[in-house]
Simulated scan of single mutants.
Amino acid sequence: MRGDARLLLVDKHLVERLLVADDVIAAVREAFELHGRRQGRVFPVVREKLSTGGVFGIKTGDVGSQGLLGFKAAGFWPANRSVGGEAHQATVLLFDPATGRPLCVIDGNAITTARTAAAGAIGLSLLSREDSVAATVFGTGNQARAQLEFALRARPALTRVHYVSSDRLPRPEFEAGFAERIELLCAADANAAVNQSDLIITATTGAGPLFEAGALRAGTHLNCVGADTRGKRELPGGVVDAARIFADDLDQARQLGELQWLPQTPAVEIGDLLTGEVPWRRSPGDITVFDMTGLALQDLTVARLIHRKAMEQGLGTAVAWPW
């Protein structure tokens, strides 16, 4: 009954507990396939700078055949760090598409981190060389750690990883999670690290080019995460126009991602590779780029996963929400 309706609240600690890597990868893969088959809709993205110094955005969409509807409100508030808070903030809201009634409010920070890292793993599985043994990771924050964690799942042959911090100094807290599994090296010279790597992961704030184009060697694959807003970039000039480009969503990448700098560059959506719509075979010398701006459908399929698990296990906080 309308008067007995409840709204489920799922906080960050419960989200982190319910996120399982294989389940997240499967949910993100489904999102890409839905997008590739045009069975899920992605609505125009809101992404605007605020007078407070933050950036606020909304990503939303639906899958009509699955009764899936919702949005993620998220952004970046760098001043949060000065008070011990996380700069990235995100909240996901799922709705009943038949009535518009809200079903579940979910903390979106962990979802964003995990679904982006899962997308990166899918990109590596599809686009990078299976014999990749060395990587360079730009960034040492939550997303960089998650990207590397999922990269090790996608490419288990990786044995050596260079990481590039903002000041080129070691980050013991970053190294702690990987030191027993791989050779982890703090790179003082970004170009030298890139030149020794088969994979490049860029997970920074997108403040500008991170290395020189000439440092890339043939056969390298790049997962690019940080360019997700107008004006952001991580790649130097000369990379996008020389590489084979793939994106989660072409329109979005041309507005917000690395493709915003050369929007006429030919590119293919990852969903079209997964569905077989576009055949793909890597040539040994190909340089490939996955331009990752983040797809609303990724947030929704992972949020639905969390919602289902919480309901099945009787977890979360249900509050009265009569309508």
Rank of each mutant, 00 (worst) to 15 (best):
R155W: 03
R155I: 02
P156Q: 02
P156A: 01
A157I: 10
A157E: 15
T159S: 14
V161G: 10
V161F: 04
H162G: 11
Y163H: 09
Y163R: 15
S165I: 03
S166K: 15
L169W: 01
P170N: 13
P170S: 11
R171H: 12
R171A: 14
R171E: 07
R171Q: 11
P172G: 10
F174T: 12
E175F: 00
E175Y: 00
E175T: 01
A176Q: 04
G177Y: 04
G177K: 08
G177L: 08
G177F: 09
G177E: 06
A179C: 09
E180P: 01
E180I: 04
R181Q: 15
I182H: 02
E183C: 02
L184R: 13
L184T: 11
L184A: 13
L185P: 03
C186G: 08
C186R: 15
C186M: 12
C186V: 10
C186F: 11
A188L: 10
A188Y: 07
A188Q: 13
A190I: 03
N191W: 05
A192C: 07
A192D: 06
A193P: 05
A193S: 06
A193T: 09
V194L: 01
N195K: 14
D198Q: 05
L199M: 04
L199C: 03
I201A: 12
I201S: 14
I201H: 11
A203W: 00
T204E: 10
T205N: 08
G208V: 12
L210Q: 12
L210R: 15
F211L: 13
F211R: 05
F211P: 10
F211N: 08
A213S: 15
A215K: 13
L216Q: 00
L216Y: 00
R217A: 04
R217G: 10
A218K: 14
G219T: 14
T220Q: 07
T220C: 14
H221V: 08
L222G: 05
N223I: 13
C224I: 03
V225P: 02
V225F: 05
G226Q: 09
G226M: 07
A227S: 04
A227L: 06
A227G: 12
D228M: 03
R230P: 11
G231W: 15
K232A: 10
R233I: 06
R233L: 09
L235K: 00
G237Y: 09
G237W: 08
G237T: 11
G237C: 07
G237L: 11
G238N: 13
G238H: 10
V239A: 00
V239D: 01
V239N: 01
D241G: 09
D241L: 13
A242Q: 07
I245N: 06
F246W: 03
A247F: 09
L250W: 09
D251A: 06
D251V: 01
Q252E: 13
A253L: 11
A253F: 08
A253M: 07
R254D: 13
R254Y: 04
R254W: 10
Q255M: 11
G257T: 12
E258I: 01
L259A: 03
L259V: 03
Q260T: 05
W261K: 08
W261L: 11
L262A: 14
L262Q: 14
